[in-house]
Design a protein around this nucleic acid. Sequence first.
DNA 1: CAATCTATGTCAGAATACTGACATGAGTCA
DNA 2: TGACTCATGTCAGTATTCTGACATAGATTG
Lengths: 150, 150
Amino acid sequence: MSQSGVDLETSLGYLLKEASSALRAAMEEVLRPLGMSVTHYSCLELLAQRPGLSNSELARGAFVTRQTMNVLLQALEREGYVTRPAEAPVGKVLPARLTPRGRRSLEKATAAVRSVEVRMLAGMTEAEQSAAFRILKSMIHSLRDGEDGA
Amino acid sequence: MSQSGVDLETSLGYLLKEASSALRAAMEEVLRPLGMSVTHYSCLELLAQRPGLSNSELARGAFVTRQTMNVLLQALEREGYVTRPAEAPVGKVLPARLTPRGRRSLEKATAAVRSVEVRMLAGMTEAEQSAAFRILKSMIHSLRDGEDGA
DNA sequence: CAATCTATGTCAGAATACTGACATGAGTCA
DNA sequence: TGACTCATGTCAGTATTCTGACATAGATTG
């Protein structure tokens, strides 16, 4: 008797949420022994791959608000994982960078997270991974499209 | 020079998080005018499709803790969207059900959320949707497998 | 039958993320 | 130049979710 509803059993949206939730749980599990949260890790990984990112850019990359990222960055700065110049080279944008300590701390976390990703991909062929990549990109694009258009 | 890292640009995990984040944002956007949060909606939708679900079952279905769901259920009960018997028919499990008011409130939300899902699926063929379904199921299965095994 | 284990509902406190607000710097445009 | 718009960093308060803990009911096991 599946009425006009969304039908959770066959909803791609529900499945997407389920997969994302499972991924997050798996990441939290391997990061907890390292004393690191997912957002914490995301920030460090972003900085490793794109040194000089600003607070707002990091926030967008980690899918949190810039206020949330700012609190995290201040903590990471205080604990010596990240450095930011006292004054902005241009405008108000403060480029952040990992310290050697930050890089060292990230190493173990990266390995742990990669093991999760490998596990997630287990049982998928190369072709399926490509398909997944393309399909997810398509979903993101479609969702971002009409968010405030028309 | 993409070192041994996870490489955000080609990481399925990152893309999964991005898609899930976009979906959540889109849902929040259409639900906000109805005064409903995503978790709020999830609870109602679950109850519509599977009447009599307990607090803990609803929590698992909405991917939150049972404590969180309990707080929400108490609020929904107080506002007359949901009813639970005063005493458990068996054990401690309290089966929850939508009231007519709850059903009415859900109608508009379901339509709104379905429009988001339709938008997300725009540009995907039937075959791609099937592939997405299968692939997401595979990811979930792989992630849940070894979460505390071995 | 008794002991143990597991799952549930619930309360309380802690952690986390968000919304609102403000000042400031850069770009646009008349 | 001056007015306007936009993005940023940051502070403060609110909201949401989580972790910890407890008592209880059912299932399991010896």
